Computed example of a mutant assay.
Amino acid sequence: MQVEVVEDFFGVYLLYCINPKYKGKTYIGYTRDPNRRIMQHNRGTWAGGAYRTSNRGPWKMVLIVHGFPNNISALRFEWAWQNPTKTIRLQHLNLKKIPRKETEFQFKLRILTEMLRVGPWYRLPLIIRWLEKDYYEEFPTERIPPEHMKICHGPIKSRNIKKPGQESSSSSTHIECLLCSNYITNCSSKLTCLNPECDLLAHITCLADLFLQPGEFVPIQGNCPFCDTYLKWGDLIRKMKGCNNDIDVSDNLNEINDYSEINDNQVNDNSDEDVISTQDKEFVDNESKWLLEWDNDNL
């Protein structure tokens, strides 16, 4: 099976233990490099694995949710998935313990399906990727993720984009935005239409302004101002980042500061080498990509 390469990767994963002594145990974590992360978990804490998974493997990374705009967004999702009884987003479920009819794995999947359908996550263009087909379970019809989210299968490889200042000057562009007539000086802020025959070139902010509906901070969908093709905002962002080039145009973020458990500390490292999980270590990178951070007052 072909490995899909995703740029600027931020993911929250679910591990499943296949050790007979601990079989059925699960672990939720955050990573920028899923292939390296699963090796760390299986090698132990000496290799950067988490304390809770050390000496209990082997583990399999069966599912990963990605498409988060930055690690702040991903880490908040991770914390809520780990702590469904504490997050205010899931209080309506009245969760206290795992029902007897559910395994720990099924319980974690049920929590995930609920999280994907409540704010602020239901607005994000997330991808739910099954990495191990033997563990795949269909979402119940009453808890199917929003239509703009994708459910897919197969391996993945991350390729993280260099931060500003690390790129060579030759990578900059001076293309005219066809919406505001100003130059697009950074490739990471340029959007193009999914229709290969369309000439649209625009700043991400210019197109967002056209797609935004009253009361929204981040768009979900809209029609191309040039060819009138129906476009999903998440598909445009994924194309801008160099992934999902097989998007069918015919098929066609509001993340808010929410959890006090995660500190807003600047981090200069662009990897997750020192980042285990919010269960093991607090970590946040305040650098905003295509997502704007909003105060709780904007909920």
Rank of each mutant, 00 (worst) to 15 (best):
V5H: 04
D8P: 13
F10T: 01
N19K: 00
P20C: 09
G24L: 05
T31L: 00
D33A: 10
D33V: 08
D33R: 06
R37I: 02
T45V: 08
A47V: 09
A47I: 07
G48L: 05
G49T: 13
G57S: 12
M61R: 02
I64M: 06
V65G: 03
A74H: 03
F77M: 01
W81H: 02
T85P: 00
T87P: 02
I88T: 09
I88K: 08
R89C: 05
R89I: 12
Q91G: 00
N94I: 05
K96L: 07
I98H: 06
P99I: 02
P99R: 15
E102L: 12
E102M: 08
T103Y: 08
F105S: 02
F107C: 05
F107A: 04
K108I: 09
M115D: 02
R117W: 11
W121S: 03
W121F: 10
R123T: 09
R123S: 03
P125W: 06
I127W: 08
Y135T: 13
E137S: 07
T141N: 09
E142T: 02
I151K: 09
G154V: 09
I156S: 05
I156M: 11
R159L: 15
R159D: 04
I161V: 13
I161Y: 15
P164S: 14
Q166C: 07
E167L: 14
E167I: 11
S168P: 02
S169F: 08
S169L: 00
L178C: 04
S181N: 14
N182G: 06
I184N: 09
N186R: 07
N186I: 05
N186F: 04
T192V: 13
P196T: 10
I204W: 03
L210I: 10
P214R: 15
F217E: 13
V218T: 15
I220F: 00
Q221N: 12
Q221E: 15
C224V: 07
L231R: 00
W233M: 04
W233L: 01
W233V: 00
G234E: 11
N244D: 06
S250F: 10
L253T: 10
E255S: 06
S260Y: 04
E261N: 05
E261I: 14
N263A: 14
N263L: 11
S277H: 07
K281E: 09
F283Q: 12
V284T: 11
S288M: 10
S288I: 15
W290H: 10
E293G: 12
D297A: 04
N298W: 15
L299P: 08
